[in-house]
Design a protein around this nucleic acid. Structure first.
Length: 297
DNA sequence: TGACAGGGGGTGT
DNA sequence: ACACCCCCTGTC
């Protein structure tokens, strides 16, 4: 009986991410662990380990600001191809320049504080799952829920890490099983959403391709998806820069920096799209990052 | 070191 | 407006 070839073992050496701007440690942390994605963890030696889809990678920052990556040898080819797209860094300069920083001193200050910050391009379905977990939860808690979902309901990927469960895998889980992943009242939303998605093949892919307004309406028909979650999914999981998610942070930030006291979330969202233009979602990330940094002790 | 409030990046009614 | 869940964090 022929023995199968030995599996490729170990990780690749660290190599620079292709066509990527230089970063600061603060910008890198904000990009991958600032609330857009929930599957990154900081390791010893200022290395980050993260997962999305069937990718597993480590990132670190060189002293000259270049971002380097390393992946398990067996999956390194697909990680090398997918990573620059996922990180979304190649168009950031032009997009930032399209923002009204010349006439908006506060925006200019936010841009200067997190140079190179951009929007991740994550898998659409995974982004929906992450933000269905997010209601009234802080990042650390969302990460915990997502880690448990992967551990208990996802399939093995590499090095003991699992993929996030697919919507089919989620549909196969009972609501109490989901609840046991610390989801609380979100378990019912995820359970019902999974049933719907499995009963409507192609629905998610079609939604991803729809124009922004139509895609948002469709997402909001799902249980547990309101305007804020829909905008996050479209911005972080479909690259729709028109999406301007309004959460309590942005409400506070806009009240403080733009004197929008007592505006409703819809009014703030409208102001955002008018003032920041078709890259409003990118502006939102900078405002968000800046306000969080100010709040930190 | 352990208990105890308080509050949390929203949605649905 | 308030319930929904319940874990994290700060504090005593």
């Amino acid at each position: 009986m022929a023995s199968s070839p030995p599996p490729a073992t170990g990780w690749t050496p660290f190599l620079p991410v292709a066509a990527f701007p230089t970063f600061t440690a603060a910008t890198l942390a904000e990009l991958i662990d600032g609330g857009q994605a929930f599957r990154w963890r900081r390791e010893a030696g200022d290395t980050w380990l993260g997962l999305w889809s069937d990718h597993l990678v480590r990132l670190r920052l060189r002293s000259d600001g270049r971002v380097e990556w390393s992946a398990p040898v067996a999956i390194a080819d697909r990680v090398r191809t997918a990573l620059p797209v996922y990180l979304g860094g190649h168009t950031v300069a032009a997009e930032v320049d399209a923002l009204p920083w010349r006439s908006d001193p506060h925006l200019a200050r936010c841009l200067a504080t997190f140079p190179g910050l951009t929007i991740l391009r994550q898998p659409f379905g995974e982004t929906l799952l992450g933000f269905l977990c997010s209601a009234t939860k802080q990042i650390v808690q969302i990460k915990q829920m997502v880690a448990l979902l992967a551990e208990r309901h996802g399939s093995p990927l590499s090095d003991g890490f699992n993929r996030l469960p697919t919507w089919s895998e989620l549909a196969a889980a009972t609501e109490p099983e989901l609840r046991a992943c610390l989801l609380g009242f979100r378990a019912r939303y995820i359970h019902q959403t999974a049933q719907f998605i499995v009963a409507h093949p192609g629905w998610l892919d079609e939604t991803e391709r729809l124009p922004y307004a139509e895609a948002k309406v469709r997402l909001m028909s799902l249980p547990g998806v309101g305007a804020k979650v829909a905008d996050c999914v479209l911005l972080f999981g479909a690259g729709r820069r028109e999406a301007f998610p309004v959460d309590t942070w942005i409400i506070k930030a806009m009240a403080r920096r733009y004197a929008l006291d007592d505006w409703t979330p819809e009014q703030v969202a409208h102001f955002g799209r008018v003032h920041f233009g078709d890259q409003a979602g990118l502006a939102q990330q900078y405002l968000f990052a800046y306000e969080r940094a100010q709040t930190k002790v």
